[in-house]
Nucleic acid binder design. Structure first.
Lengths: 234, 234
DNA sequence: CCCGTCCTTCGCCCGGCCCCGAAGCGCCGC
DNA sequence: GCGGCGCTTCGGGGCCGGGCGAAGGACGGG
């Protein structure tokens, strides 16, 4: 744990509605421009610029300029995990007005930064551990021999997964209250599923709704393949 | 997830150094009086009273008066999980000055609200799942038949564990980046280990150091028994 | 080369809230 | 019942920080 001052400084970065809206929008894993984020937050460009500067300074957001645009994304999966967890607390403390803003679909499958979350993400985690494809290892999970074979057969780029800072670790799923898979393997698993059209992104319904961009849908083909390989139930 | 406004409001409760210090102190699971929390936070009584009123109003802290004292404790394990996760992010973002404030001891075993965390907590979680004593269940974990027998043999009060809002669920361990066990079972497991002197609280070193109150030590007897029963390595 | 777009910096105003000192209320112990 | 203690409420001062408008700098397209 850290000093109360450092802790509070980090929490303060999440504690303003415009910044919270920006970070929630970035949970889709997309890199968004300053202008888009300003619109999402409902503030003017100058204010958005100041907020983003703080988030970058605080290490929560990474920026890479491209021409006259500046694309922003979450700096790490730790940031995504913290936003998810705090979102769960806020939901528990201030019960949502009616039901979930996006109904059950949002809990079924969604993106969390660069990996999959919701019931699908938790089911994948359970499948990987239950079949012994990954085993506990200091700092997270390692692939077993059976796991390497199975994952490669699914079409997952294992070297790419291994090149990440962490090969595999847990990320708390706020809606299921169980972990789903993060780290390089989580990223490559999501990339593989999207590439092979086993899951599909849903079109963002209305502009200004950052949550919509995160929703995923399991395709019939994906349901079949993931059930065969990992016992994931639709 | 919630609206950015509700999310920010909850984050704001964690975003002031005095409140952060109070909450970190309450992570020890103890119920502390307003005066003690004021001293921990380094502020006067009026300011502490105002902060605590906010935390209670926000649903993060519960208070129960006892005579002329008002004892405060964390309102739920969700609150503890959020504080732990955010602490992990703050540690990742602002690297600690030298090493960990309390050295490796703090990562080895500690309390997280009412259950055990650190390498010991993660090892217990791995032992319970690895031996099939608990199995995935909607909203968390359920005890298997083998688990019920084994847990009862350890001396754990299963009816008490079942009376909690959740029987067993995961709580992300920020230092190990893997889940440890929370919920009623996590609470009773910690209570059992303390009662049987398998783990012992370390005396708080210096007043004003809230982290010290959370540290735990695995006794030789505890190491032996937990290794036999669950394969926990010292 | 010039204009439009995107983003940032600057100057300013304003609201919120953090803190303390002083005073008020409730409970315990003698 | 009286003094002491713990905690809260009230009033006032101060500061941090968010918001906008206007202006300035960088880049791409025509």
């Amino acid at each position: 744990m850290t000093s109360p001052a450092a802790f509070a400084a980090t929490a303060a970065l999440l504690a303003e509605p415009p910044r919270a809206a920006m970070l929630q929008a970035l949970l889709s894993g997309e890199a968004l421009t300053a202008g888009e984020l300003a619109r999402v937050a409902g503030i003017g460009a100058p204010a958005a610029s100041a907020h983003l500067a703080r988030l970058v300074e605080g290490g929560l957001v990474a920026v890479h300029p491209q021409g006259r645009h500046r694309y922003h994304r979450l700096a790490s999966e730790e940031v995504a995990a913290a936003i998810e967890t705090l979102g769960g607390l806020a939901a528990a403390v201030a019960p949502p007005p009616r039901r979930w803003p996006h109904g059950e679909e949002f809990r079924a499958a969604r993106l969390c930064y660069d990996h999959m979350a919701g019931r699908l993400g938790v089911a994948l985690h359970a499948g990987l551990t239950g079949r012994g494809w990954i085993a506990p290892s200091p700092g997270g999970w390692a692939a077993t021999a059976a796991g390497e074979a199975g994952l490669a057969a699914l079409g997952i780029d294992l070297p790419a997964a291994r090149s990440a800072r962490r090969f595999a670790c847990d990320c708390m799923d706020w809606s299921e209250r169980r972990p789903h898979l993060a780290g390089g393997l989580g990223r490559e698993l999501a990339a593989c599923c999207l590439r092979r059209h086993w899951v599909a992104r849903l079109p963002g319904m209305r502009e200004g709704d950052p949550l919509a961009r995160r929703r995923l849908r399991l395709t019939p083909e994906g349901a079949r393949r993931l059930h065969e390989a990992l016992g994931v139930a639709a």
